[in-house]
Design a protein around this nucleic acid. Structure first.
Length: 279
DNA sequence: CATATGTCCTGAGAGC
DNA sequence: TGCTCTCAGGACATAT
């Protein structure tokens, strides 16, 4: 479930492809059902051939490889996608390969066990259209004022609203629980009832949790799916205080027990002692 | 418009 | 042991 820290780690893992030239692309045929590859591999190959990589960016939970043609290759991992430069976890779920020349990295692979992700080649205009109004301010650069302005009018629960990529880009299910726990805010608090001091805390811990998770190269959960570009585990799972810790003692207050509830069909974890409902 | 729900997908784990 | 069932949650389509 790559979220901002995992996708940022993928981006950093392939930064060295900047300056390389595209030698070719290949759609791996191992999967039963192909992922979304757009356009088809023929047009994809023609439009990328011999193009130079000018930048590797992250837009929310997507990795964007920019080419000197103006086109960009968008990797969208969704649940189980990985961007790799070496040693895929298995050849079975390799979906796409980008071959390069003129740099230290000969190939970038896209691997995706469940295949809900996609690899797309988009023009500048298509990319702008894809993101226009659909992607909020990035969670790493949003200010406290922006965060409050964009979320506080909502009637939704704060945990659910944090996942809305149109409001705030990058936060997913795991980090939303961790951020609210550290901010001591109950996940079912309505946004329009969250106090100014609580918004400030949410903003502070939003930045701290994501930065710390990036330093640890993301979270590899018990299913082991997430890996960095070198097929190594992340380390932030060892710093989780609530996620996937239902019925275990709270590490923050030593008194509460971690609860699991379901909000918008997704698991939420919190400590009812630390995160008392105030609204 | 804002918010809620259903859908896709595979493999791990539970339960019998 | 081996089967069936449930669940995990990214983003988007559709419904309310």
């Amino acid at each position: 479930m790559p979220e901002l820290p995992e996708v940022e780690t993928m981006r950093r893992g392939i930064l060295a492809i900047i300056g390389s030239r595209v030698r070719g692309v290949a759609a791996e045929k191992c999967a039963r059902k192909p992922i979304l590859l757009s356009p088809g591999i023929g047009a994809f190959a023609r439009r990328t051939k011999d193009r130079r990589v000018t930048a590797v960016d992250r837009l929310g939970k997507r990795v964007v490889v920019r080419l000197d043609s103006g086109d960009s290759i968008i990797f969208e991992p969704r649940m189980t996608g990985l961007v790799l430069v070496a040693d895929p976890p298995s050849v079975e779920h390799l979906r796409f390969r980008l071959d390069l020349a003129g740099g230290p990295i000969p190939s970038v692979w896209y691997w995706d066990r469940r295949g809900l992700g996609s690899v797309r080649l988009l023009s500048k205009k298509q990319l702008a259209g894809l993101l226009d109004g659909k992607l909020g301010v990035d969670a790493l650069s949003i200010t406290a004022e922006q965060l409050r302005a964009v979320l506080s009018p909502s009637k939704r629960a704060i945990k659910v609203a944090l996942l809305d990529q149109r409001a705030l880009a990058g936060v997913g299910n795991l980090y939303a629980s961790e951020i609210l726990h550290r901010a001591k805010v109950h996940p079912e608090s309505r946004c329009d009832a969250v106090k100014p001091a609580q918004w400030k805390l949410i903003h502070t811990h939003l930045g701290e949790v994501l930065q710390e998770a990036i330093r640890h190269e993301g979270s590899t959960l018990s299913d082991g799916t997430y890996r960095n570009a070198l097929n190594q585990s992340g380390g932030f799972q060892n710093s989780h205080r609530v996620y996937d810790r239902a019925d275990e003692p709270c590490l923050s207050c030593q008194r509460g027990t971690i609860k699991r509830i379901v909000q918008a069909q997704r698991s939420t974890f919190y400590c009812a002692v630390c995160q008392r409902r105030r609204s």
